[in-house]
Simulated scan of single mutants.
Amino acid sequence: MEFRDLKAQYNKYKNAIDFAIQEVINNTNFIGGKEVNTLEQRLAEYVGVKHCISCANGTEAMTLLMMAWGIKEGDAVFVPDFTFFSTGEIVSFVGATPIFVDVDRDTFNIDTNKLEKAIIKVLNEDKLTPKVIIPVDLFGLPADHIEIEKIAKKYNLKVLEDAAQGFGGSINGKKACSFGDAATTSFFPAKPLGCYGDGGAIFTNDNQLAELLNSLKVHGKGDNKYDNVRIGVNSRLDSIQAAVLNVKLTAFIEHELEDVNRVYRLYTEKLEGIVKTPIIPKGYVSSFAQYTIKLNNKAERDALQAKLKEESIPSMIYYMKPMHKQGAFAEYKYDHNDFEVTNELCDTVLSLPMHPYLTQYDIDRICGIVLKSY
């Protein structure tokens, strides 16, 4: 059994994917070209924003925004404590200071009450200048962007929606990647919309920001790549990855988002009341990058994972270590007690196999092992 079955997806769309890749090879247009342009247009239309700027990966998508917004040493950027390392890494990479914030116990996303307290604390200390909030749409569920945008407006902060795991999710019909001043996503293979390598994208309605990002991602180009008007980077999505994504985007829109939510409902029907199953607030849709349950303690979690492994069923722990405990952030002094929920989650969460091609048989088998453990 696969944790996220990319083989099943490929087998279903093999002819279309192979044809799309071969077209790029035949045309020998490996960087840029119609595949990338088509993908950017389709993604922007799906999300409901003016601009989609593709790039090399999700981490560089966020880094490009830090560069475009001039985030630097002395600036504070607010990041959830329970997330993947790159969300904090890109802050330190440009010399700014990540301020980690505890998360909500039910949604795993940044706690908006604690976020505002963290902003006020930084303002009162008067050592750093608050600049950006980076809410993460963890495991496919959009963060509380409505409240976050109110807070950002109150304190004059920018919002970067990190939708690396969230593409396809929505709040009251408004799609992930359309919140904040700009949003980013990742096309890492295991993401809800993944390519066959690395890839990422930025979404915004800001015309000037889009123009700047398109310059920064190609060596700070002006009218062309040999007219360099600023210092930039080399961060482009290649044509083969775009070709693959164009096929997979069609599948995602036509059935994958619906199918992964069907899997979520089947899991939850069997496991609700036995373990703590994912909570999806009213009006929200998750794209379920992960289906993450909570156990009562670390011993229970580790025992269940061991039992699943005995039955050749893969599972993953996202995440074993909070951001504030990562060695790369050791220079910052954090109070462990400020992260009560994150500390608890790192000891109790377990992600089960989750993808649109999971069969009823597989779901029954997985749930059977969980049920036998209680």
Rank of each mutant, 00 (worst) to 15 (best):
Q22N: 15
E40S: 10
A44D: 01
R42W: 06
F19N: 14
F30G: 05
I17K: 03
G33D: 14
I21C: 12
V49R: 00
K50S: 11
K34A: 07
E40Y: 03
T28I: 10
V36Q: 02
R42M: 01
F30C: 09
G33M: 06
G33S: 11
H51N: 02
D18L: 09
G48M: 03
H51L: 05
V47F: 02
A44I: 06
V36C: 07
G32K: 04
E23H: 13
T28H: 13
D18T: 14
F30A: 07
N29F: 08
T38S: 14
L39G: 01
N27R: 14
A16E: 15
K12T: 12
G33L: 09
L43I: 06
E23T: 15
I31F: 12
N26G: 14
T38D: 15
L43F: 09
N29E: 15
V47C: 00
K12M: 09
V36K: 10
K50E: 04
N37L: 08
V49D: 03
A44G: 05
Q22T: 11
T28D: 14
E35H: 11
E45A: 13
V36L: 08
K50F: 00
K14G: 04
K14N: 11
N15M: 05
N37Y: 08
V47A: 02
V36W: 00
K50W: 01
E45R: 12
G33E: 12
G32H: 04
V49E: 00
K14L: 08
N27W: 02
N37M: 08
A20F: 08
E40D: 12
K12N: 00
L39Q: 11
Y46S: 01
I31H: 12
I17M: 14
Y13G: 06
V24M: 11
V36M: 05
D18E: 15
T28L: 13
Q22Y: 10
H51A: 05
E45P: 00
Y13P: 08
N37Q: 09
E40K: 00
E45L: 10
Q22G: 06
V47M: 00
K14T: 04
E45Y: 06
N37V: 04
L43G: 01
N37F: 07
N11R: 13
A16V: 04
V49I: 05
K50R: 14
I17L: 12
N37H: 00
K50L: 01
T38H: 08
V47I: 10
V24D: 05
V36E: 06
E40V: 05
I21P: 01
A44W: 02
V47N: 01
Q41S: 14
N29R: 08
D18I: 11
I31Q: 07
V49C: 03
N26Q: 13
A20H: 03
F19L: 12
Q22H: 14
Q22R: 14
A16R: 08
I21M: 13
